[in-house]
Design a protein around this nucleic acid. Structure first.
Lengths: 317, 317
DNA sequence: TTGTACGCGTTATCAC
DNA sequence: GTGATAACGCGTACAA
């Protein structure tokens, strides 16, 4: 259970290179790091030795010595949602540009697994953590954050702790969605996003707010609107919190006509029937923003935790 | 460009714990590793010190000492294809079970970036590499493989080198697809998979083979069937090599009716109009299989490189 | 220009 | 039972 060994037979080390080139260890180090103060001839001897032996510097050892690991950890609740993959993409591009490599892990919406993953990454001394959180407390992170692990949450805020967060403008998105549906004459507009005490709280709040603003009422008698509940509900339209729910609504809509607005765009939104109107946000931008924020922290930004909202736009179909 | 530093202020080390508990370093090590030969009282003192200081063992240091890193590297050409994310998912579950953590990276179909990523991971001394390859030579890996980095390719075979490979039964899939379309009366069936000298060679070969078997001929005069070429082609049906091409065909099919069979299933295949028949393979299983194969290598399996084909099935819609 | 001695945080060896 | 001491592969300070 702890990395079932597999002989990594001896790769050549700087010591090997040094003795083969007939120089001191430090000289090899100089050459490898491009430090000044080495005769071209000596440098060549070292380079030849490196070539012959197929030497490649052990970054792990170097990083142990220098103190930081040039590594970031990315944790998502699922890879099934393409938006999450897109967030990762934006993040990775920034990370690579700055010389960071990424650990990644997915929790499959298991809070314990999230904790295990995050802590395992911290044990490896990642410089920072980017998390698309799973519902559940994140207080297991406070000691790590205090110890200096820069942390930013993405798409959803953390629970029970405060930390940097980058997410779409959910309130604005809800407003746009409800306005769009109201314009089309809908009055009974439901919200599809799982149990009422569950995650998309801001989105849910935005929905309620927008309904009020539009002069519409939310009937508490509406059944919990989930994949099963939808067909019997008396709503004529639904606002879906994420792709999973949009999909469920779409399937249900084949049995009974329901207007759908989804939060988050997806590849086939225009190819599906009926085409789905969506509130679009740019997941790649979110990932990039999170990465940049994290890197600012890494280079010394000690200002209070920030909450960054990325704009959304309605795409009517 | 090399991990812009960010002071990871001193976290407590075993030394700190030792002096606080008033014991020797080695004793702390014993306690932390659950080694025998420590008085319960001493153990308690150590545990208390650990608690007080918020000590967490530095895995990087441990792994440097023990020689292996308990880390695997995953590289994909893109995260945009949900199948790739699913492969990752299957792989991750196996890896975590065995105590491995994953580095990940995407190439965006840039062969150079793939090489940089793979080499960076090797420099970090990953125990193994799992690659969904980007077109281009992979001979940059031979020295690493010789040095002991277990490597397995997924979904596509590597170019110019031989290594373990896990992929769907493309030939069988092509046969099933063509048979299905032929049954429906189609005779002019095109192949949509990018330039003829490009990647899905086995799939392309399977297509040609299946056409012959079905007594159909492939007209070399058919234009290169890409997203633009499709509408003017005289084919009545197309077999699409991957989700990207299936999507293109679907868009084109709105202008002119074309029957579509895609290689690889996707979420909205049944919700799209017309519903898309697909040759389905199990990406999670492929990831799991690759992970298991890799781990067998890691524990000492030195048999010749294997090529594992995972079965496919036709889902008519 | 080049080399020596030491330290990073941990595990391993062999004494006491 | 417990503890010095060396070692992993590399960077850094300082001397030669």
């Amino acid at each position: 259970m702890a990395g079932d060994v597999g002989r990594a037979v001896g790769r050549p080390t700087m010591k090997d290179v040094a003795s083969r080139a007939g120089v001191a260890l430090k000289t090899v180090s100089r050459v490898v790091n491009g430090e000044p103060g080495v005769t071209p001839e000596t440098a060549k001897r070292v380079h030849d030795a490196i070539e012959d032996l197929g030497f490649r510097r052990n970054e792990s050892a170097r990083l142990l010595r220098t103190g930081h690991t040039a590594t970031l950890g990315f944790i998502t609740d699922t890879w099934a949602d393409p938006d999450h993959a897109a967030v990762y993409q934006g993040l990775e591009n920034i990370a690579l540009e700055h010389g960071y490599l990424l650990y990644s892990g997915s929790t499959e919406s298991d809070a314990d697994r999230e904790e295990r993953l995050a802590l395992a990454m911290c044990a490896r001394r990642v410089d920072g953590l980017i998390i698309i959180p799973t519902p559940g407390s994140h207080d297991y992170l406070v000691s790590e954050i205090e110890a200096g692990v820069a942390t930013v949450f993405v798409l959803h805020p953390p629970e029970l702790i405060t930390a940097d967060t980058v997410l779409p403008d959910e309130r604005g998105g809800a407003r746009a969605a409800i306005a769009h549906l109201a314009d089309q004459g809908h009055r009974k507009i439901g919200f599809l996003g799982g149990p009422a005490d569950h995650r998309p709280q801001t989105l849910r709040a935005g929905y309620l707010e927008a309904m009020t603003t539009a002069g519409l009422t939310v009937d508490p008698a509406w059944p919990t609107l989930d994949a099963e509940g939808l067909p019997e509900a008396e709503v004529t339209a639904v606002f879906c919190a994420d792709q999973e729910h949009t999909q469920a609504a779409l399937r249900a809509a084949r049995a009974r006509s329901v207007a759908i607005v989804g939060f988050g765009d997806f590849e086939f939104a225009d190819l599906v029937s009926p085409p789905v109107t969506v509130v679009r946000y740019d997941p790649v931008l979110i990932g990039r923003t999170a990465g940049e924020l994290l890197i600012r922290r890494l280079v010394g930004d000690r200002t209070p935790p920030r909450r960054v909202e990325v704009p959304v736009s309605l795409i009517a179909r």
